[in-house]
Design a protein around this nucleic acid. Structure first.
Length: 315
DNA sequence: AAAGACCACAACCGCCATTAT
DNA sequence: CATAATGGCGGTTGTGGTCTT
């Protein structure tokens, strides 16, 4: 038959560890090691704990050289970059951060870091008046459709009826989903076409890298720059350039990429059936610059059911 | 001052591939 | 081989502390 049962579940302590228990476990492991057997360990160490609980306590808390508290900017950057490329594979991410545990990083991401990443993405809570004209978007199919059920980027809630970009200087992480096959004619800046989705959406992972993933298309005289983040499903929004022939009258000499149309964000309020546009502080060229700068990273992939394409961009 | 909301974090739970009997 | 438990992982929850109302 199989193995013998590990421990008497009924006679095992749960909940937070006391300093005494910590001391016992630490002392035992420092003296005898784990013996490659966590299940037998609590018996030997005289602890009324399940082996699994001991393992967790050791790995996440008692083990030497564990860093706790403040994450550095560099650590933030690594976490964001890795999250953007591999998602919530915490143990792999932790392996790149000496002294950090997967549990710590996971907690940090879920409670703090995610919230820091409001970057170039509109801050939905704003009630500033919209800067741009309201204009219909001719091809509703081209909206990126996002929802925040994945709870990755709940930047928007159902109570918000418009999107405004706040000019946040911080980095932004963008999560997008679209529930239609991406169009063949969509352009990717700087990227190779192969890294875009195959038309049947059969790729499980499409590419890594910065600039490959930003999508641009032209529909009805509008340049559209496809990027999105987590949204309630009542909302759809996209970034796009204003009218192509719009005159850029700006006289800023410091940035060679200052030509081009202002980047607009359009959101669709399904409840009210209204499309709202507002102007982004960055123009398309600036966003391209951001995307292709060394710090950026992004990728796209399809989910298992091949029904959604998702991508993430890290600036 | 009390109650409730919010937050950070440690710990637990269930799943799954691997391993021991 | 068949079976049952382990170890590792990621999602989730419980808990204690702090902040708000």
């Amino acid at each position: 038959m199989g193995r013998a049962p590990c421990c008497d579940k009924a006679n095992v302590k749960k909940g937070p560890w006391s300093p005494e228990e910590d001391a016992k476990l630490k002392e035992f492991i420092e003296k005898h090691g784990t013996g490659g057997n966590w299940i037998a360990l609590p018996q030997k160490a005289g602890l009324k704990r399940c082996g699994k609980s001991c393992r967790l306590r050791w790995l996440n808390y008692l083990r030497p050289n564990i860093k706790h508290g403040e994450f550095s900017d560099e650590e933030d950057r690594i976490i964001c970059t890795l999250y953007a490329s591999i998602g919530s594979r915490w143990s792999i991410i932790a392996s790149q951060l000496p002294g950090r545990t997967d549990n710590d990083i996971k907690n940090y991401w879920n409670t703090k870091l995610k919230k820091k990443l409001i970057g170039i993405i509109p801050h939905a809570a704003s009630n500033k008046s919209l800067a741009g004209p309201i204009e219909p978007i001719s091809d509703p199919q081209s909206f990126l459709y996002c929802n925040n059920n994945n709870n990755n980027f709940p930047f928007f809630t159902s109570s918000q009826s418009s999107c405004n970009y706040q000019g946040n200087q911080e980095m932004g992480l963008v999560d997008l989903q679209c529930d239609y096959p991406l169009k063949e004619n969509m352009l990717m800046f700087g990227g190779n076409e192969n890294s875009c989705s195959s038309s049947d959406g059969s790729c499980s992972q499409i590419s890594y890298g910065g600039k490959d993933h930003v999508k641009q298309e032209e529909i009805g005289g509008l340049q559209r720059f496809m990027i999105s983040n987590g949204l309630d499903e009542n909302y759809k929004f996209m970034l796009h350039c204003g009218k192509i022939n719009q005159v850029d009258g700006d006289d800023d000499h410091h940035h060679h990429h200052h030509h081009g149309d202002p980047l607009m964000i359009s959101s669709f309020d399904k409840a009210n059936g209204v499309v709202k546009n507002s102007e982004l502080e960055y123009d398309l060229e600036e966003v391209k610059q951001l995307i292709s700068s060394s710090g950026s990273c992004g990728f796209m992939f399809n989910d298992e059911n091949k029904t959604h394409e998702r991508g993430m961009y890290y600036f």
